[in-house]
Simulated assay, not measured.
Amino acid sequence: MFSHGGPGTGGGRRRRRGRARAINEINMTPFIDVMLVLLIVFMVSAPLLSAGVPLDLPQAQAGQLNVDAKPIALSIDAEGRVFLEDAELADGEIVAAIEARAEEGAEARVFVRGDRAVDYGRVAEVMALVTQGGFSRVALVTLPDQN
């Protein structure tokens, strides 16, 4: 006899009608693609972050920087003349002019701005005069690299 495949007869296959079953597996391909891109970005950028001279710096507990006090700025033009704001100074007048401006005394910050064309020795002379005058917080000012 032939079976018509009805319920309870066990004959024939059942067909499912309606939606297909949901796949309960995570598709890892987009995740792996993102991880590979991030790996490449970090591999390229890591050498750029560590550019510079390697130093073994001492550890110290530093206090908060005094950002309220305006630093004193000395400028050295291409001819080697020294200026405090717009006033030209002779070498013997530099320390006295800084002391007159320094509200914090010897702890005042002094920035030295040297022209690109000025001799490095002249910049070193001015910095030596300032440090011999008792000012220990002397720094050179440069422009950021445009590249």
Rank of each mutant, 00 (worst) to 15 (best):
D119C: 12
N27R: 11
T142P: 04
A97V: 01
I72T: 03
T29I: 06
A69N: 09
A60Q: 11
Q146N: 09
G133P: 03
G114M: 11
Q61S: 14
V112G: 05
T29S: 04
M127S: 13
E125D: 12
A90Q: 12
G134K: 01
A69G: 08
D77P: 01
V126E: 00
A102W: 02
V82K: 03
A108N: 04
E99Y: 15
A73I: 13
M127G: 12
Q132Y: 07
P7W: 05
D86L: 11
V53Y: 10
S50H: 08
A73M: 06
D33R: 10
A108R: 06
M1I: 06
A51W: 14
D145V: 12
P54R: 01
G11V: 12
P54A: 07
Q132G: 13
R16N: 07
F42N: 01
F111L: 11
A97S: 13
L143Y: 15
L36G: 08
G18H: 11
G6Y: 03
G6W: 05
R137Q: 09
V123N: 13
E104Y: 06
Q146Y: 13
L129A: 03
V130H: 00
S50Y: 09
P30V: 10
G63W: 03
A78K: 06
L129K: 05
L36D: 06
R14L: 14
A73K: 07
L89R: 02
P71Y: 04
R13M: 11
A96S: 06
Y120G: 15
A69C: 05
R113P: 03
I23A: 15
L36R: 13
P30I: 09
R109A: 11
V82L: 00
E85K: 07
A106H: 04
P58S: 02
R13K: 10
L89F: 01
I32L: 13
A73L: 05
G12Y: 11
G52K: 00
P47G: 03
A69H: 10
V34D: 09
Q64P: 15
P54N: 01
A20Y: 04
G63C: 04
I94P: 01
F135D: 03
P47E: 00
P71M: 09
F111P: 03
V130A: 02
A128S: 07
G105I: 07
V41G: 07
E25H: 14
G134D: 00
A106E: 08
D91N: 08
R113V: 09
G121L: 05
G105L: 01
H4R: 13
L74V: 09
A51M: 11
V118T: 01
I32W: 12
L74P: 08
Q59E: 14
R17K: 13
E107Q: 15
A73E: 09
N27Y: 14
G134T: 01
M43L: 14
R14N: 12
R14Y: 10
N24C: 12
A87I: 13
A90F: 11
N147M: 09
F83H: 14
A102P: 02
M127I: 13
G133R: 05
V130T: 05
E103W: 04
A96K: 03
A73G: 00
P30A: 05
I98C: 06
A117R: 11
Q64Y: 12
R81N: 13
A124C: 01
H4D: 15
G92F: 08
G134V: 03
A106T: 10
G12C: 07
R116E: 14
V138C: 02
D91I: 00
D77L: 04
L36P: 05
A97L: 02
S45F: 10
E107F: 14
L38T: 06
F111K: 06
